[in-house]
Amino acid sequence: MPVLPAECLEESDPRFARLDEVIERYGRNPSALIQVLHEAQKLFGYLPEQVQMRVARRLGLPVSHVFGVSTFYALFSLRPVGRHRIQVCMGTACYVKGGEQLLADLQERLGVGIGETTADGRFELQAARCLGCCGLSPVITVDGDVYAECKPRLLPAILKKYD
């Protein structure tokens, strides 16, 4: 079972007021749970515990029920996702030609582990299975843009393009 981040949002965070509006818009109807969670995720980027508790209370549902739904559907995320998603190919060809080094370099540069998001929410780092462009190895992608024959020294320039 994955360990979830302990997040602490301020009660005064304006996104809570917007979330409340969404819930009101659905008439506090518990059967609108999935839609509400969907909009909550758009607001917060993911579904932290405080948000799920808020949704649960206002819809009159137990948190356990909301949690059951948010962990059941793949479209919901329980951890922060970055604005930009970096994937480093770990297929055999890329791996042999330095993919692993790219991954290590990115981890150090961004200060995050694999599957994590930077504190400022800018990048999310992932190790990918073969991305299917072995001729261009080693490969990384950022938001789907492919960077072929990538070297650690090229990384700063690449990252700069994504804000």
Partner: peptide, 24 residues
């Protein structure tokens, strides 16, 4: 849930399914 407490629920899916309180 008949007791109107709802402390326990299913979470996750497939082989990862668990039963227990929310957020572990």
């Amino acid at each position: 849930s008949l007791q109107a407490v709802g402390a326990l629920g299913y979470a996750y899916r497939g082989l990862a399914t668990t039963v227990g309180p929310a957020f572990s």
